[in-house]
Design a protein around this nucleic acid. Sequence first.
DNA 1: GATGAATGAGAGTTCATTCAT
DNA 2: CATGAATGAACTCTCATTCAT
Lengths: 189, 189, 189, 189
Amino acid sequence: MKEEITRHSVKLFQQKGFSETSIQDIVDSVGVTKGSFYYYFKSKEQLLMEIHSRYIDDLLHRQKKVIANEENNQNKIAKIIELIILDIKTQGPNGRIYLREMRNLSKKNADIIKAKRSKFRHNIEQVIVEGIESGEFRKELQPKLITFAVLGVTNWSYQWMNPSGDVSVEELAVIFSDFVLHGIQAKEG
Amino acid sequence: MKEEITRHSVKLFQQKGFSETSIQDIVDSVGVTKGSFYYYFKSKEQLLMEIHSRYIDDLLHRQKKVIANEENNQNKIAKIIELIILDIKTQGPNGRIYLREMRNLSKKNADIIKAKRSKFRHNIEQVIVEGIESGEFRKELQPKLITFAVLGVTNWSYQWMNPSGDVSVEELAVIFSDFVLHGIQAKEG
Amino acid sequence: MKEEITRHSVKLFQQKGFSETSIQDIVDSVGVTKGSFYYYFKSKEQLLMEIHSRYIDDLLHRQKKVIANEENNQNKIAKIIELIILDIKTQGPNGRIYLREMRNLSKKNADIIKAKRSKFRHNIEQVIVEGIESGEFRKELQPKLITFAVLGVTNWSYQWMNPSGDVSVEELAVIFSDFVLHGIQAKEG
Amino acid sequence: MKEEITRHSVKLFQQKGFSETSIQDIVDSVGVTKGSFYYYFKSKEQLLMEIHSRYIDDLLHRQKKVIANEENNQNKIAKIIELIILDIKTQGPNGRIYLREMRNLSKKNADIIKAKRSKFRHNIEQVIVEGIESGEFRKELQPKLITFAVLGVTNWSYQWMNPSGDVSVEELAVIFSDFVLHGIQAKEG
DNA sequence: GATGAATGAGAGTTCATTCAT
DNA sequence: CATGAATGAACTCTCATTCAT
């Protein structure tokens, strides 16, 4: 039931926004009563926090695996981009909430999520640092800013990308990896 | 007075979000009463619509000038990126509202804004198309998707960029132009 | 278990008030679940009724003994005052609920308790009547009103008296008996 | 209107209790809507606080005058008792709320009211101290405890006294003054 | 005996909006 | 132009109570 409520909430938050979705909307959608909602969740914010936590925890976990498994830094970057882009199809609504609705977390909860987001960002930054050291990427790059550029490319996709449109997530991942790698690779030969 | 109300609203919407900001918050901030607000604005949504309209109209106007004045497509791209990034300093709050708060427009108004946003996007796409034709940019690029990538890089900056931090908007514009152009330029020689 | 629930309830009702204490508060305090509560009590009101009933039944029982055992009416008054005041130490919370939370009984139950309270009051009144007849107390006293005065002195003590403060309940009982008896005794010879 | 709301609230709080009276009850009684209530009061607690404040401020003010105007301490005591008892007729509901509903004030507000209540009590205590010194009252009395006894007599009257019953407030004031003064006066001659 | 999930009514509060003055 | 009183709908959340297991 908790799962059920969460599922419907994610869908509604994504469509209408967190503040614009009422508890009534949620329970009507699930087909239960308000009392039930508050049996499972202490507050509306707690529900939002759970959505955020799950999402970023899962992302961090998979990012870790990718970084551990890929051999060179170019591939690591490509795989991280792929990770985020392929998720649009399976995790789209979750991702959109994750990217838009942090304002509605309490300071305490927001801090927890922010720390994890930073971790995710620093992991990418680290790959770029190592890619520069290994000669894969251009020496003059500023890893921190490039990381923000990469995240801009991937995260913004959650705003416009339609996985059932004429470009598939798989194709998009390749195209964006290509764009990013051209942007940062050192000249060959 | 209308200007005054708009100014305070922009600041508040950016800090707390549109739904989370009450008319009371706005009029308290300005130092007038609710009656006054409704003398100048038909509704809260109309205020939001005006903020959106102004912002995108101004952006389109300046984009047009840039495209007209720059000679080659590389410079056009660089100048458009600069346009968006430099704005973070002067138009940050407006920009953030523009990027986040479209959900709260009525369908009718949202459609108007969406059309203008598309125009802005198509103008960039057109530059890329022409850059490919002129040989400046790589033949295999998909202009539409590259446009989304570029907008991702610039728009996402409104989320994290602090114009009074250790990287200035001017530096960031150069760094991001460089990144994007490396990503799309045809191999020389 | 029923005893256990009642004990914890009395403590909570006294601290926060009947309406302000939820069934959840009670069962959390006891360490059981709501289902259990409703196994032992038909309703929250029934619990309150039992607390009231026990308290006044016990009081009436002990008042009866005191009146039967004491020889003169002065001693009867003194012993009744002692009875109520000493209880602050052992029955404080029960007493406070008894004095404050009658509003939350249904009419039917309230009537039952009111009848018993009246009985308690009339018993005191009767002692005063007999004391006047015997010449112990002043002729001009109005027994009914004096009874209310005595009850005011004793009952109000439940509001402010701290049995572990610098006056003990034993001392207070003596002081208040003295005050009351001076107030009603006939001038001696 | 604020006055109107307060008046109806006092009546309802007295009848049903603060927690048991809903904002809906209040506005239905006045004939306005909930919005109006919150136009005049920040919260339900603020309304309660205003009722408490007014009541104790008025009481303190009048107590001060009585103490200043009466010549001997016996009269001061008698007049203070009269003050409280006569109020049952005109201020009954206010008084009952004052005596019963302090639990529902926030700690901050409760502290303010408690301080004023203590002032009222200390003023009586002071009269007793001076009466002992002047020889009017018995030497062995403990002023603090006697004060509580006197307040018990008067305050408890708010619970049972019916000003339109067969004893008038004026008569009761005389009877209770007489009872109290007999209780504390030094033996004459 | 005891649990835990579920209910439904109602609580206090907020808020965009209206309108007579 | 501007105010301030008033509305009514909706909001988040609480709670006594029920009942299948």
